[in-house]
Computed example of a mutant assay.
Amino acid sequence: MSACFAVIDFETSGLSPAMGSRATEVAVVLWQDGRELDSYQSLMNAGVRVPPDIERLTGISNAMLRTAPPAARVMAEVADFVGDIPLVAHNAAFDRKFWDHELGLLGRQRRQDFACTLLLARRLLPQAPDHKLGTLNRWAGLPDTGRAHRALADARMAAHLLQYLLDTARRQHGAAGLSHQQLCQLQKVTASKVGSFLQQA
């Protein structure tokens, strides 16, 4: 049996907590052996206003957030849901900032690294037209998971992409059952060394 991964996605009020942005929705899909085991999703009220352009992008309105549970409660729940399961996200640098910031407000710390399907796709799928999540899923013919820029649909999309990347590593390089640690190492390998890294994995 292969490793279980917690594939995470945030929707937010802006680009960075350093600029005062906060999370507005979070979702996690627990993924193992090509299938979804469980999921968590919730809007979260962090007391911030969502700018009109982001409201149009995500469909998450300020009215929806007014009735959403407090961000602190949601983050405590989702952190307990994930526990020590290895984390994965598409463009993980973005989600990691919000995960760390929102947890930090609770006095908690992340205990595991993030593997990034964006960085992994750049190494394993250099022939793709680009490495945006939606583009990759359409290009690879992966399942339609629902409205883009909503957390659960995007987390499911990233989970299917993760599986496609694992299958690609196995099919093209004979690397079966890559661990989370190996994925974190692979995403830092230069393109020219991907083949030799995977042959040793």
Rank of each mutant, 00 (worst) to 15 (best):
A3T: 09
A72E: 14
P70S: 08
M75H: 04
D144G: 10
R110P: 05
Y40C: 06
P69V: 08
H131V: 01
V26D: 02
M64D: 12
T117C: 05
L106D: 04
R35Q: 14
G141I: 02
L120W: 00
G34Q: 05
G34F: 03
I8E: 00
P17R: 01
F81C: 01
G47V: 10
S16A: 11
L125P: 00
S21T: 07
R123N: 06
T24F: 05
K97T: 11
P69R: 04
T67Y: 07
D84W: 06
R123T: 06
P86K: 04
T117M: 06
D144H: 13
A23G: 13
T24L: 11
D100W: 00
A128L: 02
I54H: 02
V26N: 02
R123S: 07
F10Y: 13
R35L: 09
G134C: 05
R108G: 00
Q127C: 08
V78A: 02
Q109L: 11
V88S: 05
D80K: 10
P17M: 00
G104Y: 04
D33I: 12
R123F: 03
N137K: 12
L118W: 15
A148C: 10
D113M: 14
L57I: 13
G14V: 05
I85F: 07
R147N: 14
L37E: 15
K132H: 15
R22V: 08
S39N: 13
D38Y: 05
A68N: 05
R73N: 10
A6F: 01
T145A: 00
L136S: 04
H90W: 06
I54Y: 02
Y40S: 02
A46Y: 14
G34A: 07
I85L: 13
R22K: 13
L103P: 00
L125E: 15
Q127N: 09
N137F: 01
